[in-house]
Design a binder for these strands. Structure first.
Lengths: 343, 343
DNA sequence: TTGTACGCGTTATCAC
DNA sequence: GTGATAACGCGTACAA
């Protein structure tokens, strides 16, 4: 009874019954006298018995636990996703085990290993910036282990991916800028390796040509690090060097957009009068800035929720991974605020 | 071999050896021929054997997993803490299982129950705003189950708490405002139930009297909801009603501070010239605002890391919870930025 | 209505 | 050097 870890056996001894009777009584099996059930439950309560989930896992080869591998938690988008994941998992009776890769490939690899060792029922993954090959995923995937990817999803045949429509989001944002009369729109890009970056760039490009504007490759400027300082500096240099003056920025993420806003303010350009700015992700702080930053909202919590539902459905064999649509693309929503509205 | 879940027994059969030999060979026990070891490891690799952590947990009554119960993940401070927790846990060979209470008491209660059921080795807790009684903690604590509280910590005798020095942080912030010449300083308070709120208010009060200013209870204004809109509205009303014009705000959190900034801007007051503002927590966006918001930085990741170290030390009996200091108080750091600097 | 025996995967212990 | 057995906590087919 130490540590309140009373087992079925302990109850059995206390009542002079067999372990199986206790087990059955606790689960209201038919064929156990009400009297016994009552007694058993009473004693169980007294000894504060708690079923041992580990023993159950071992028996059923199921842990009712799902794993989550993300680059980092301290990130508005990812924490939103985790929130959605946790919510759905909890409501369906699953625990969530969380690992950050810290954008490192080796931690990503070792994480799935531990997860498998721990008899995790399935995992949700958004891979690291370092990840270029996917053997560590396909290997376990081929063994029938359920994995659902979200946001940063690999192009593996048969992999199930939940993403947002980055292309459309970027297209909308750029179109919006054009509709507000901006003509020289710079795109501050993200890490080239990630599909989300290339998709956003593609949306930007198509929106331009679709609206009769020229796409100029020198208008796409990568911000590999992803800090405010970086984009602020890049934009500042831009204004001092470029022959044609940019009048708008569509950034791959909100942090980049903030940098652009700061750089503009520094050289005395007014937003949105002189320069328009739109970000991507719609982090909380967008509406706290002055002027309020326009941004493309990604449904983070919804993404987490959807991905989790799919994963658990696969685990519980409610759907067959072979026969399903292998990608779910969620809609983004342009939040047009003061930073890009001239009219 | 289905699902790559080869067991020791499978290897034993394949090699015509006993399970115990395999177990020993895999762990390089003395008294096993090198030849056997080689073969065993080879076959294990081939069958891609992975030790079953669940079986191990059952045997050892240890899961090498710690639980984390927090109000919500989508929160800069808490996600920082989680990051620190995950980091330390990982480096010491522990998994992290995450649950959000969503500020609900009942979810908090059921969470510890599942954790105990899952043979979690110990938990880290920051309780919900709803939590007024602590029986659900003391009950398991008394059974010798390791719990370490962080940030929102209860006043239970013997409970181990890791917090930041809210009092000193508030004292510093208020003193800073005074030193900049502000005289009518309003405190935008947080939820009364939380000790962090009362401590911050106490720090504010003491800083005033310590500097020869009067503390007026009507200058402490609660913001129970905690949204930008709420504090914005409260501050706006303040300016229209109060006889004495406030010239500074020390908010219990950054969101409240932003609301104050917005309200001031709306009625044409310049920050920091007319009004000074300081927040608490130093969220990422503070330095993205215009003017940059001064705030009291709390070491979130460090707090998570420290709490985890203590918890694991207790679990591994490296320290005795009875004989240790039962509270660790981390220092805050005032980040004085443009929103409060007149000189 | 209740008890017995077995297995989930692993390892410590004793035996040969 | 290696094997057999028991035990961790639980559920269940089979017996009584």
């Amino acid at each position: 009874m130490k540590l309140g870890r009373a087992t079925i056996k302990d109850i059995a001894k206390a009542l002079n019954l067999s372990a199986s009777t206790i087990s059955r009584a606790l689960k209201d099996y038919p064929g156990i006298s009400d009297e016994t059930k009552r007694k058993v439950k009473e004693v169980a309560e007294e000894m504060n018995y708690r079923p041992n989930a580990i023993a159950l896992s071992l028996r059923k080869s199921r842990s009712f636990t799902i794993g989550v591998i993300i680059p980092e938690v301290v990130h508005f988008f990812f924490s939103s996703v985790v929130s959605g994941i946790e919510e759905v998992a909890h409501s369906r009776g699953y625990n969530v085990i969380l690992v950050q890769s810290n954008e490192k490939l080796d931690r990503e690899i070792s994480s799935i290993e531990t997860m498998l060792s721990n008899q995790i029922d399935g995992v949700l993954v958004s891979f690291s910036k370092e990840t270029k090959t996917f053997n560590h995923f396909t290997k376990v995937l081929d063994q029938g282990f359920p994995i659902v990817f979200f946001d940063r999803a690999p192009e593996i045949p048969g992999a199930i991916n939940v993403t947002v429509d980055d292309y459309q989001g970027a297209f909308d944002a750029t179109t919006h800028l054009i509709s507000q009369g901006y003509k020289n729109i710079i795109h501050l890009g993200g890490p080239k390796l990630l599909k989300i970056s290339t998709e956003r760039e593609r949306g930007y490009k198509d929106a331009l040509t679709h609206n009769g504007l020229d796409f100029k490759s020198e208008y796409v400027i990568p911000c590999p690090i992803g800090t405010v300082e970086e984009s602020q500096q890049i934009v500042a240099e831009l204004f001092s060097n470029m022959t044609v003056r940019p009048d708008a920025f569509f950034a791959c993420n909100d942090v980049g957009a903030v940098g652009a806003m700061m750089a503009c303010r520094e050289i005395g350009l007014k937003i949105p009068v002189d320069v328009g700015v739109v970000g991507f992700s719609d982090w909380q702080f967008c509406s706290m800035l002055e002027p309020k930053l326009s941004s493309v909202a990604q449904p983070g919590a919804l993404m987490g929720a959807k991905a989790t539902e799919i994963l658990i459905d696969i685990i519980e064999k409610k759907i067959d991974p072979e026969s399903m649509e292998n990608s779910l693309i969620l809609k983004t929503k342009l939040m047009a605020r003061d930073s890009s509205k001239r009219f």
